[in-house]
Structure formats: structure tokens, C-alpha cells
Design a protein around this nucleic acid. Structure first.
Length: 215
DNA sequence: AGCCAGGACTGAG
DNA sequence: CTCAGTCATGGC
């Protein structure tokens, strides 16, 4: 399966996605945590609330009253967890020194992020890729769903990630665009009600093994 | 009226 | 290690 070809098709169909194109790592950190298992629209509302409350700042969140963060973050769902995770993440990164994350070797930075409660693999990789422009490919639920339909099982996250990285140009901007395009494709064609008409990958899907067709 | 959204943690087997 | 249960609001 030619991932570069898939990228070309998606890019032709959807154009440039520019996820977090001009944002910094803090924007991505907060956005990624708030967007966990939540529609982006709701995470966006929570972001606005944080800004209006003067809490959109690493130091401010780290030293904040947890309840005021909860109020802001409520629209994003799981608001008690997310408030706690946000604050914890800010405290940890402050004590580590944010600039250290840029200097560290990639695997080390990844481990540092993963050691923060509330930051799992996808969130850590999103922060590294979109926030720090480090070459790590992000695998998410859409990626799983789509590629299972195309005939490739990705249920092991690390294996899946390495497979992508080994089969496309090892470039952060390419990773960033491809992942965003995959999510875009997923939203449009692979939701609860699959819309196969006009799907840019329809031929690949048709020629795939028939076992996982029913997603 | 359910179902789902750009996950991660916990506890049980 | 795998897997269900849990966390929670808003939109369709």
C-alpha cells in the first residue's frame, strides 16, 4: 500500500489542513488534552473560557485554583479530569523547564511527556509533532478505522506508528499534514454512517480483504 | 433519545 | 497484556 499516493489523493481532495500551523507548544498541549475524546468544537469553547479567565498561560494554570479551571473547561467534557490533568501537566513542564523538551533527544522528550498523568501516546505525539515540529507520526482512532478497512491492522500503536514512519518521507510537516488529512477523511467518509460514495480511497478499500468491511 | 466526539487511567482476570 | 468501566458535555 502506497502511503505517499494516499497522501497525494487526500491532499488533492481536501487541500492543506494546517492544524496548529502557527500555534506554539503550549497551545497544542492545552488543545490536545481538552480535545481528548471530545468534539473539537467543545474543546475550542473551553479554550476561549480559559483565555477570558486569564488562565491561558503556563504559569497561571500551574498556580491556579483547580475549581476555576474546572469552570472554564466544563464544555469540553470530563472537566474534572481535564482540569486536573492540565494543571498537573503545567506543573510538571514548569519544573522540567519547557526549553528542555526542545533540546532533548526525541525519545527522551516523549518519555518525559508520557510520564505525565493524562498524557498518553496520542497526546504526547501530537504535542511533539504539532507543538515542537518533531518527526513523530500520530496514530488515532480514525487512522485505525480507515486502515483496517484498507486491509491493514494497526491495533498495536507503536507498531503502527513505526510502519507509517518507515513508509513516508521522514519529515515533520509531511507527518502533520498526513495525519490531519486522515482525520479529515475519517470525519467525512468513515463516521458512524460510512459514506463510501466519492471516497478518494474507494478503490483501495474495495480491493482490501473483506473481513473488516463492516466498520 | 441515543450515539458519538481528534483518549487515558484504573482494576480485574 | 488485554479489556471493560469510567470520566461528562454538547450537537445532531
Amino acid at each position: 500500500m502506497d502511503l505517499t499516493d494516499i497522501y497525494r489523493r487526500l491532499n488533492r481532495r481536501f487541500g492543506r489542513q494546517k492544524w496548529w500551523a502557527k500555534e506554539n507548544w503550549f497551545d497544542v498541549l492545552v488543545g490536545a488534552i481538552l480535545a481528548q475524546r471530545t468534539a473539537w468544537k467543545n474543546a475550542e469553547q473551553a479554550l476561549e473560557n480559559l483565555k477570558k479567565a486569564g488562565l491561558y498561560d503556563l504559569n497561571a494554570i500551574a498556580t491556579s485554583d483547580l475549581q476555576s479551571v474546572e469552570e472554564c473547561v466544563r464544555p469540553a467534557g470530563f472537566y474534572r479530569q481535564k482540569a486536573r490533568r492540565l494543571k498537573d501537566a503545567c506543573i510538571r513542564i514548569l519544573s522540567l523547564g519547557p526549553e528542555r523538551l526542545e533540546e532533548m533527544p526525541l525519545e527522551e522528550a516523549r518519555k518525559a511527556l508520557l510520564s505525565i498523568k493524562g498524557i498518553g501516546r496520542e497526546t504526547a505525539d501530537s504535542i511533539l509533532l504539532y507543538g515542537f515540529r518533531r518527526p513523530i507520526f500520530v496514530v488515532d482512532a480514525y487512522t485505525n478505522r480507515i486502515f483496517k478497512r484498507l486491509g491493514r491492522d494497526l491495533d498495536d500503536y507503536e507498531v503502527a506508528r513505526r510502519w507509517f514512519e518507515a513508509n513516508i518521507p521522514q519529515d515533520a510537516d509531511f507527518y502533520a499534514e498526513l495525519h490531519a488529512l486522515i482525520v479529515r477523511l475519517g470525519k467525512t467518509y468513515c463516521g458512524s454512517e460510512p459514506q463510501c460514495d466519492d471516497c478518494p480511497l474507494l478503490d483501495i478499500c474495495r480491493s482490501a480483504p473483506a473481513k473488516d468491511k463492516a466498520i
